[in-house]
Amino acid sequence: MKLFRDRRSTPLWRDEFAIDQADERYVNRRQFSKFLVLTSLGMLVGNVMIAVRSWLRGAPPPLPAAPVATASEIPVGAVKLFNYPTPQDPCILVRVAAERFVAYSQKCTHLSCAVYYEAAEKRLECPCHQGYFSVEDGSVLQGPPPRPLPRVVIEQRGETLVATGIETGARPGGHA
């Protein structure tokens, strides 16, 4: 180690602040790109966790069958509200024709407001943000809801209408 600096060599300030500013900026950008790549790894881990969780969960157990109404108590174009599969799950049953019943979860897929049947337009309406669903298959016709209404599978057993399960996604032809 030299005791005295050579005056003709690099100036003192360069010895004190030895980092070149351009290099420092470059290193900062490179560090930032490394951080972004690590964030990308985090996103990948999140996606894999969702997939593994979905795989481990497997198929949901079949829901119990539950009588919800009798056919004669609902005129054509009328509705009946019921809860299925738990008392905390409100559903709406619509008789769209003499022999055709459809039922959906009453919770809007946007922010869970209760939807109601608009008989004049033959559609289900969410009054909170004017979201409209098709009464035929529960698909979104208009508004902010991101997904169709979950459909309650209804079977007609004699005079009794029985809920036997819930399907997600728009599948036309879901009727009793």
């Binding site: 790549v37 990308s40 990948l44 996606n47 894999v48 969702i50 997939a51 996604g169």
Partner: peptide
């Protein structure tokens, strides 16, 4: 996944892996 459409989660994970590989490659 929360909406019950479980069929999309594995393709999404695979595409996410491809994107991560691209980021790592860059």
């Amino acid at each position: 996944d929360l909406a019950g459409h479980h069929e999309v989660v594995w393709p999404a994970a695979i595409i996410s892996a491809v994107i991560f590989a691209a980021c790592g490659g860059l």
